[in-house]
Design a protein around this nucleic acid. Structure first.
Lengths: 230, 230
DNA sequence: GCCGATGCGGAGCGGATGCTCCGGTTCGCC
DNA sequence: GGCGAACCGGAGCATCCGCTCCGCATCGGC
């Protein structure tokens, strides 16, 4: 069966010829503009704004991304990845595993506190753990946890650390603009709660990293706005 | 000047006679229905749905609450108060001040994790600290903090505890439906971080309870949807 | 019971927004 | 350079949603 499949060029359908050069450029500029706009205004932004900012027409935008959600997903994939990477770099400069963990949170929260779309879509962490950007984030945290495990109180899981990041992310949203020191205090409190010291271990998580039920119907675009099919 | 103002009945304008009985009933049923609907669907809900659920027409609804935000504000005022009260009651049954604090968080997070509108509008905690419901919540926390102060690490403020509540509130939103034990773990970690034990005190908050700048333009209704004036 | 002030209902307005349609343009293989 | 497929742009469609308007019903002081 498999042997009968014709081996066809780089991927899947062979008859489709390479995209035109201008189309490639347009796609890139759409993604770049969308990243900016989504960071500034969140996923509820008008698609026209993205088209305008990237200098293409609506037709072009919708040719590349048939649904708004397709575009948002692509951008979030990229930006979650960039986020994970920049936070990982900050952690790699630290002098000990615990400082690495602390620096990771510090960088993760400062660097992306203003990225509305990411802050809005933390739910993806649980509803779509397989999105590439999310997976990278998890991997970074898992690595940091392993290195710092001697200092972490027993029973702390990667999911605990991830949920802490999500949770603090919202604290940052509320306080960063007016009183940034507030979320820093909360970060410090939480990190202290994670240290081993002489506390008893946490109870084992009942399903440590099992598959997670996606919540009801969380879509990427337009929180609480029903998607409408034409 | 003041002396010339006529003293007029119970309040302000005297010529307005008491509202009709049916109007009072309608107002109550609107608030009740709105509370349900807002809890279920958040502030982005269609006003028509509230009118339908409460059995009144649009005209009636807008007579009582000229703007959607007026209604939402009234409901949130009530519901924040109810929330504070129910959490305070849970705390009052505890056997020691620390357990009271823990029970408070437990009840606050369990009882209102499903109240979409409250979870959405934690920002009010910072942007409108004078809203009555918010003030009650702060008062309860302040009281618990005072009672547990011997066990709290030095430097922990009421705002710290409030921000922790806000922050955990979002963790609850993400995990309560599928893995409720996850946020419970995070609560435990955070509470442990608040205990005095042998850690150094937190640095003093730079402006402990000073006036807070309201963030850019947060309105109660329809997150990220620009209000439109007719 | 009369009657006017008060209250009611819901069709409809205007604007925002996701998405489509199609005539005109441009690229790139030959 | 020629030509057809791929691509582009933006006007326009359908829908949603906050809010208004106005003819009609109801309450309640007399």
């Amino acid at each position: 069966m498999l042997g009968r499949m014709t081996v066809t060029g780089p991927q899947s359908t062979p008859r489709r010829r390479a995209p035109r050069a201008d189309a490639v450029l347009n796609r890139e500029s759409i993604i770049e503009a969308a990243s900016q706009v989504l960071a500034e205004q969140g996923t509820a932004v008008d698609v026209r704004e993205i088209a305008r900012r990237s200098g293409v027409g609506m037709g072009t935008l919708y040719r590349h991304f048939p649904k708004k959600e397709d575009l948002v997903r692509t951008v979030l994939h990229n930006d979650f990845s960039k986020w994970a990477e920049s936070a990982r770099r900050a952690a790699s400069d630290a002098e000990d595993p615990w400082a690495a963990l602390a620096d990771f949170y510090q960088q993760a929260l400062t660097g992306y506190a203003r990225h509305c779309a990411i802050m809005e879509n933390f739910a993806l962490t649980w509803s779509e753990p397989d999105l590439e950007g999310i997976r990278q984030l998890r991997l970074v945290i898992e690595e940091l946890r392993a290195h710092a495990s001697a200092l972490l109180r027993p029973g702390v899981t990667t999911d605990d650390l991830l949920l802490l990041l999500v949770s603090l992310g919202h604290a940052v949203q509320f306080t960063d603009a007016c009183r940034p020191q507030m979320w820093q205090r909360l970060l410090r409190i939480s990190l202290d709660g994670l240290r081993t010291d002489h506390r008893e271990p946490l109870p084992a998580a009942t399903s440590p990293d099992a598959g997670i039920q996606p919540s009801d119907s969380h879509t990427l675009a337009a929180r609480s706005r029903p998607s409408q099919s034409g």
